[in-house]
Amino acid sequence: MRKTWWKILCIVLLLYAIIGGLLLPVPALKQLQETIRNLYYHVSMWFAMMAIFTISLVHSIRYLRSSDFKFDICAREYATVGLVLGFLGYATGIIWASFTWADPNNPAYASFGSIAREPKLIGTAIAILTYCAYFVLRSSITDIDKRARVSAVYNIFAYAMLFPSIWIVPRILPSLHPGQEGNPALNYNDIDSRMRMVFYPAVIGWTLLAVWIATLKIRINFLKEKNWLNAK
């Protein structure tokens, strides 16, 4: 029970987020209408992505402090899962934008051209690119020891360069995306209290699901490398 309670919690929260997210009442806004329900899935993807990348960063720091390969495997797998969440956040954002921002009178590519300049889209695109670069860097070093060390250094450096700017830059550049002044969705006045009842559990649920997936992948990798990890 000690090890499974958070998995049960994750399933319960996600069931609540999916059922409650689709059925509970939401404020009817002129522009958004029912698409506002996407908040539970789109925004929580980004929250989960940031949390997962932060966990990856912590494992990289622990690797550099201890030179234990287990932490390197953890950092890599968390980064993989974070990347998947980033793509999912993009996908949900595209669906939302196509109903709210895109002009149905224009061809799709014309809308894309104007939407792609959004500072928040640029921010997340570079977050995804950075972690793709992390994997390119990993694959370009053959020596295992060196690969673990260099990629941990890059992970820390990239995280420290990237995330402050993701949080700061969009506030300086003009944008259509909501949440221009302050922390989007965390700000108390931003979302209706009815939505907050579903939104916060959804964030926790998706983050727990991502951690669960990552721990499964890590355990598979530990088994794969068992001989080699124990030999060290």
């Binding site: 570079i126 950075t130 670069a133 860097l137 990239a158 990237l162 700017s165 830059v169 300086i172």
Partner: peptide
């Protein structure tokens, strides 16, 4: 590799 690693990191600062 320099270009691959560098461009994502440099973009926010360039925007500023």
């Amino acid at each position: 590799l320099m270009a691959i690693l560098g461009f994502p990191i440099i973009i926010p600062q360039l925007l500023l």
